[in-house]
Amino acid sequence: MRKPLISGGIVFLIVLLFFAIMPSVYSNEDLFFQAMVYLALAQGVNILYGFTGYLPFGYVGFFGTGAYAASLCITLLHFPPVLGIIAGGLASVVLSILLSPLLRLSGAYFAIGSLAASQMVYYIVSNPSLQNITNGPYGINLESVYQPHTSYVTMIVILALVMGVVIYIRNSRFGLSLQAIREDPVSAGMAGVHVVRQRAIAWFLSALIAGLVGGAFAWHISVFYPTTVFDLNISIFAIVFTLFGGVTTVLGPVLGMFVLYGFYNLIGISEPQYFQLIYGILILLLVLFLPSGIVSIVKRRGHYVP
């Protein structure tokens, strides 16, 4: 038990040190901020999909809710940004409670249901009738509290919390119970696992993470439209990064994000004409030869992956 925790801790430290140090090496801080956003979201997807088997295509709904709730707390209620971010996380948890009946679905039905739910939230937020509250289609302007360096540090703290939670789940009875539910809920229930409660906790945790990250993102980017924070590509990126690295591990989403997001920026910036081709081939190769992600190469040899 201690040794897996130590190996998870090493990944934790390396990742956080990387993000803490890199802005002083390479001054495009925003690049690393976005990388942290996707890594934290990928870990949120990991908790939900990796450990429970629910694939949340509409995960961006929690992200956008967090972004909007944090922004509205800052602009309307004059919360300090950090408090706004916490409120954003809590708002996403409230939304996840409202949407918890979705957990009665499974497989593709759940994926489509969560997607529809995220679109529903998007249309509510961007509706002109709510302009007095959400500013409707005019979006959010947080220029008065724009502090890119402070929001960067806040994002590191959120990432640390998220990584800590995933390391805990990976190495705890709670994580084992989730995996048991994912494999066979009936057997897990008969073995004494409280299926509904454990699933719901994973669902709330996952929503909390997306909400906190959305709040930090809103603060960092400061001017945005509803389309920016409810962009389905955010869900897709988080899911693809998780699957590419390998689910149910701490390291998988880390590797997935670093490799794919690194390529996304490198190819997308320097060779945009080949970007979609190369990215597509990379994902195709993964699906064909490494369906369980990069970490499966190590797992197949019987080694432990944190």
Binding site: K3, S7, I10, I14, F18, Y26, H303, Y304
Partner: peptide, 29 residues
């Protein structure tokens, strides 16, 4: 007993992060 997993882990993590750092740093002009 844990030497091998640790070695594997550190290889994956360090090489992955170095490669990523290089990839991200490759953006520099």
């Amino acid at each position: 007993m844990m030497k091998t997993p640790f070695r594997v882990l550190s290889r994956i993590a360090v090489s992955g992060l170095i490669a990523s750092a290089m990839t991200l740093s490759g953006l520099a002009a």
